[in-house]
Design a protein around this nucleic acid. Structure first.
Lengths: 335, 335
DNA sequence: ATTAGCACTCGTCGAGTCCGAGTGCCAGGA
DNA sequence: TCCTGGCACTCGGACTCGACGAGTGCTAAT
C-alpha cells in the first residue's frame, strides 16, 4: 500500500540528500526517482513521514532532510550490500603481507579509511589468556630494569620496574633463571600461585613482587586496551557535511581513548553483524552529528573495527566495507 | 634610531595580531603599546616595514598583518623565554612515571600538545647500535613464527617470518638455542658475520637467513622511523586561525609519515637549539599556512620533538615549551 | 486514493547605501 | 632631520530592500 511507497520515498530522500548534501523536494523526487506518482502525492507522504519524525525541513520552503530517526529506519531496512570487487582485491593485497600484529592493525585502519573515505577506527584485539613462554629482564641503569614477557600466543609485553635498592649481578641473574623456571608454560591461577610463592621466597629480591604482578597481567591478555584511528583528514575535507565548529570535538573524542572504547563496547554488546549508531544514538555530545558503523572481529568477536563519519554518510557502502575488513581481520588474527 | 623603533613596531604588530587574530592599525599601536610616538610616525614605519616585506595589509583600510618574513624576523630577534613554573612542574610529574619507551613518547606528545595548545609531534628515538641479549622464536601455526629480539639497551623488536616448509619441533628448538649462542652479546659486523656463518651451516633450517637478517637490523637500531602526533583537535578548534579548507591537507600531511619525517630531518640538520619553520619555509604546500617549532633530543640529538600550528601562533611560548620537553626527553632517554 | 492547481512562505541573491577604521600625504614645528 | 597634527580618500563590513523562486499545504476534482 502507501505504507510501502512511503518507505520508498524515505529511501529516496536519504539517498538524494546523501549524494547532493542538499534538502530534497517533492518535485525533484517525482522527476528523478520514477516512483510513478506525482509530486503532490509525494508531498502527502512527506507530511506523514514528517509527523512520524523521520524527516524534517530546515526551514519552510526548503526540501526535506532525514532526521536521525529517518536514517535509522533507512538502515534497518537495508539489505546487505555487496562490496565492489576492486575493494575486495584491495583488502587482500593490502593486508596479506603484514609483518606483525601492529602492522596488521595499522594497515587495516588505513585501508578502511581509504575504502570508506571516512575516519576508520580499530580496537586492538584483546587477546585471551595465554601461557608464559619466556621472561627476560634487562638492567637499565642502577635502579631500573625492563621486564619483557613473551607469551605462547606470540604476544610481547614490556614494562620498566624500579629495583628499589642495589641488586648484585648474581642475584639478578639468579632471579631471571628462577622466574623463568617458575613461570614457563603456566597460565591463569596456577601461574599466579607459583609466582606468589616465588616472590615470597625471594627475600633478596625486593622487586620480585612487581615482576610477578606484571607477568600475571601479561598472561591475562596484555596490558591496556587501545584504539587507533586514521583518516582524520576525511572529517575536515571540504563538503564532509560537518560544520566548522563540530569537528574539533570529534577529534577530541577520538584522541580520548576511554570514551570511544566505552562506546565500542556498547556496540559490541548488541551482537549484530554490523552495528550502527546514528547521531544522538552515540550518547556523546561530541559525536551528535556523526554516525559510527562497527563490526566485531577476532576469536570471540571481542574487538571492534569501525568507521566514523557525518550522519549524512553512505551507509550501505560503509557497512559493506566495514563488514569485509572485519571478516578479513578475523581470518588473520585467528591464524 | 628609528631602526630600533621599527623592530619594536614589528614586534608589537606580531604580538597584537597573535593575540587578537585581527589586523592591527597604527592608532591601536600608538595607544596601547606605549611606544612614545604618535600614530603618524608609526604609519611611516609601517610603510617601510611593508616595503621590506615584513608586513602586509589584507586590503586597503585594514590594519597590518605580519608576513612569513615578518614572523621570521620576529622569531630571530627573540630571546629565549622562560617557561612558566606551572608548566615545568607539569612536565616533571607527567613524564616521571612512564612505564616504557612507548609510554614516554605517548605521554610526551600529549603533554606537549596540552602545553602549547597545538599539534605536538614526536619522532621515535632512533636508537644506536646495540648488542643482542636474547632471541626468542615462537611458532604461530604451522607456517609462521614470531621472532622477538631483546637488545642490551632494552629495546624489543618483533616480526613474523614464514617458515617455508614444515619444521620439526626438535630442529626448531635447536635453532633457537643455536642462534642465541651465536648472537648473544655480539654487535655490528661481528654479529653479522657470526649469523651468516650460522645461517649457512644450518642446512635443515631454510628460514635461518630471514631470522639472521632481522636480528641484524634489530641490532642496528630498530626497524623503521616513526612519528606520532596528538592534539589534532587544536587545529580545528574555533579561532585557530586556519580557514576551513586548509586543515584537511595538514591532517593528511601528519598522517603521511614520510613527508613529515623528511621535514623533521631537514630541521634537525640546522642544529640550532630550537629550529622554526614558518609558513612557506616548510616547502610543503599543505603546511604553507602553518609553522612548526622543533627541537632535537636524545643521545646524539638525532630525534625531534615539535609543535605545529598556524603561522599566527605564540612563538615565544611554544619555543619554550618545546625546548623544555626536549630537554626532559633527553634526560629520560639517556637514562 | 490520487492529482492538478493555487495561494503562501521564506530563504537567497544582488543592488544600493552608509559608516568608520585605517591609510597616505603634506605642511608645520622641534 | 625627524616627528606630529590634520585632512582627504579608500574600501570592506553591515545593513536594508525588493525581486525571485523553490517548495509547501490545502482544496476541489477525478
Amino acid at each position: 500500500m502507501s505504507e510501502e511507497r512511503r518507505r520508498a520515498v524515505l529511501r529516496a530522500i536519504v539517498e538524494g540528500y546523501v549524494s547532493t548534501h542538499e534538502p530534497v523536494g517533492s518535485k525533484a523526487l517525482a522527476d528523478a526517482h520514477s516512483l510513478g506518482v506525482s509530486s503532490a502525492t509525494i508531498r502527502n507522504d512527506m507530511a506523514i513521514l514528517e509527523e512520524e519524525g523521520l524527516i524534517a525541513q530546515p526551514h519552510t520552503s526548503a526540501g526535506r532532510i532525514p532526521t536521525d530517526l529517518g536514517y535509522r529506519s533507512f538502515v534497518d531496512q537495508l539489505a546487505a550490500a555487496a562490496l565492489p570487487d576492486a575493494h575486495k582485491r584491495a583488502i587482500g593485497t593490502f593486508l596479506s603481507d603484514a609483518v606483525d600484529l601492529n602492522d596488521v592493525v595499522e594497515r587495516s585502519v588505513r585501508l578502511l579509511s581509504q575504502l570508506t573515505r571516512q575516519v576508520a577506527v580499530v580496537q586492538y584485539p584483546s587477546l585471551r589468556e595465554s601461557a608464559i613462554r619466556r621472561i627476560e629482564l634487562v638492567r637499565m641503569g642502577a635502579e631500573h630494569a625492563l621486564v619483557v614477557v613473551v607469551s605462547a600466543d606470540a604476544r610481547v609485553d614490556q614494562r620498566t620496574i624500579a629495583l628499589g635498592e642495589a641488586t648484585s649481578d648474581e642475584t639478578f641473574e639468579r632471579a631471571v633463571r628462577e622466574v623463568n623456571l617458575t613461570a614457563e608454560g603456566l597460565t591463569g591461577a596456577r601461574l599466579e600461585a607459583a609466582l606468589t610463592v616465588w616472590a615470597a621466597a625471594a627475600d633478596q629480591v625486593p622487586w620480585a613482587g612487581a615482576v610477578a604482578d606484571f607477568v600475571v597481567t601479561a598472561a591475562r591478555g596484555g596490558t591496556v586496551e587501545r584504539v587507533v584511528f586514521a583518516g582524520a583528514s576525511n572529517l575536515a575535507r571540504q563538503g564532509s557535511g560537518l560544520e566548522a565548529g563540530t569537528i574539533a570535538p570529534v577529534l577530541e573524542a577520538l584522541e580520548e581513548q576511554v570514551v570511544l572504547l566505552r562506546l565500542l563496547h556498547e556496540m559490541a554488546a548488541e551482537g549484530d553483524d554490523v552495528s550502527v549508531r546514528i547521531g544522538a544514538e552515540t550518547h556523546l555530545e561530541a559525536l551528535s552529528r556523526t554516525s559510527i558503523v562497527a563490526a566485531a572481529y577476532g576469536r570471540d568477536a571481542s574487538s571492534l573495527v569501525g568507521a566514523l563519519g557525518p550522519t549524512r554518510m553512505d551507509y550501505p557502502g560503509t557497512m559493506a566495507a566495514v563488514r569485509a575488513v572485519a571478516r578479513y581481520l578475523s581470518k588473520v588474527v585467528e591464524h
